[in-house]
Design a protein around this nucleic acid. Structure first.
Length: 400
RNA sequence: GGGCGUGUGGCUGAGCAGCAAAGGCAACAGACUGUAAAUCUGUCGGGUUCUACCCUUCGUAGGUGCAAGUCCUACCGCGCCCA
């Protein structure tokens, strides 16, 4: 892999670049749509390409469980297996340490949202529910050093998971993750890390960081292929730890860097934290922000020096009936859309907007027809990709 | 004409003496950021001083009873069977 920076903004940390891989070039900054199980749910690879997507990210943990990396390897690795000709990333499984661990214990599922929002959602009185569980307040939920999630064991070597599919015990550590990712064969792979939960306190995160840093070294050593390997910076919302992590990970011989975990209580804090990290990372190597990418966040994260970022929002929300448009988010399941004979977004020129109207999409969604989700997935990806494309243009013109 | 059965909130469908009435659907609202999924949560007869109180509801009209969607009588509607 080769990363070139074509232009550095004079008014922010934004950079315009391209990421060259065996499977083609990615113009950055760039959104990386999520294809956890080697598929962008509801779309086939050709359709994904038509949404202007340049690169996808799949998941080590889930592909290891099903169908297993051997199957993928035999098929000719991920690209051939899923018939995707452009670049690919695989995430290491570090996120599942959170989502299947403390995330699950705290009923967060995969929600690694901004801290305050989580806390207010966790307080049952906040959403009008009966208050018998009112004693479950944020402070009681702080995760202290030494704490373990209910369903997995995190130790210095790695993590003992339980398969959500069949309950099998399975161990994933840095070596295991790299081995699997080598067999999957993505262009860019990630070091195995612990994604710390938002309610983890300073001491917990500090201890976790020791593991993540140690694992990073093991991953570098373990990798035998010429796949690009990104190290992951953690440190949660704590400046000292973020800086420490960025210095440590940034000092290792990685091809690029992921930035993961939690990013504070507000959008402003997120930008702030990204800047702590960006300032410590080697300038010439690419940075990937893991899991963040609401439309309203994009400009800020790009201005903080992020080159690529993945996010489930466009695809996940699509399956919940939400379309992103220049008029904001629309919930196409609302009955009122049965009366709207107009495209999702009158300014959009994607295939869906050129050929379908809101009334039909609303009908499909209400009828539980998968094509409704598919049409929204296509549109949302196109919309997000176009949105980032415009940001690239702004960088070109020196506006950002 | 006779016999049996049945009528519950927008729909469906529990309840068979102490309920504004389970469940489901629909409707309405909200959430979702390295995907535990095509998910979850809340509201859902009306009104107020809304973690509480008041009013009106279970085909219609009477009756028994402290209390009736729940028991009794009549009527009306629907269903099946017999003439």
């Amino acid at each position: 892999m080769n990363f070139k920076i074509l232009k550095k903004s004079k008014i922010s940390r934004a950079r315009l670049g391209f990421l060259e891989t065996e499977h083609g070039v990615v113009e950055t900054p760039c959104l990386v749509p999520v294809a956890t199980q080697a598929v962008v749910k509801t779309l086939d690879s050709k359709e994904v390409e038509e949404t202007k997507s340049q690169i996808l990210i799949s998941n080590t943990f889930w592909l290891h469980l099903r169908p297993g990396e051997k199957v993928v390897e035999k098929a000719g690795k991920l690209h051939k297996f899923m018939n995707w000709k452009k670049p690919l990333m695989t995430d290491s499984g570090g996120y599942q340490v959170f989502s299947l661990g403390f995330g699950r214990d705290f009923g967060l599922g995969s929600k690694l949202a901004l801290g305050n929002e989580i806390f207010s959602r966790l307080d049952p009185s906040a959403d009008g529910a009966h208050s018998s569980r009112k004693n479950l307040l944020p402070r009681a939920m702080e995760i202290k050093a030494g704490a373990q999630p209910q369903n997995l064991i995190i130790n210095s070597d790695g993590v003992v998971f339980r398969s959500p599919i069949n309950g099998d015990e399975l161990f994933l550590g840095p070596k295991e993750s790299i081995k699997i990712q080598e067999k999957l064969g993505a262009d860019i792979i990630f070091a195995f890390d612990e994604c710390t939960p938002p309610m983890a306190d300073f001491d917990y995160v500090k201890k976790s960081l020791e593991k993540t840093h140690n694992w990073a070294k093991i991953c570098l050593k373990a990798k035998k292929t010429k796949q690009a390997l990104y190290g992951i910076v953690q440190g949660s919302r704590f400046k000292d730890l973020r800086v420490e992590s960025a210095k440590f990970i940034g000092g290792l011989n990685f091809d690029g860097f992921g930035i993961g975990g939690e990013f504070g209580n507000s959008k402003k804090e997120m930008s702030q934290m990204l800047q702590w990290v960006a300032d410590e990372l080697p300038e010439k190597k690419p940075r990937h922000l893991l899991g963040v990418g609401y439309l309203e966040d994009m400009e800020a994260i790009i201005k903080s020096g992020v080159d690529t970022f993945d996010c489930t929002v466009p695809t996940h929300y699509a399956r919940r009936g939400i379309a992103f448009t220049s008029e904001g988010k629309l919930n196409l399941k609302q009955t009122k859309f049965l009366k709207k004979i107009e495209p999702l977004d009158k300014n959009c020129v994607c295939n869906v907007c050129l050929n379908y109207k809101k009334d039909y999409i609303c009908h499909l969604l209400k009828a539980g027809e998968i094509t409704g989700m598919k049409l929204l997935t296509f549109h949302n990806l196109w919309y997000f990709n176009t949105f980032v494309e415009e940001i690239r243009n702004k960088i070109k013109k020196g506006e950002i």
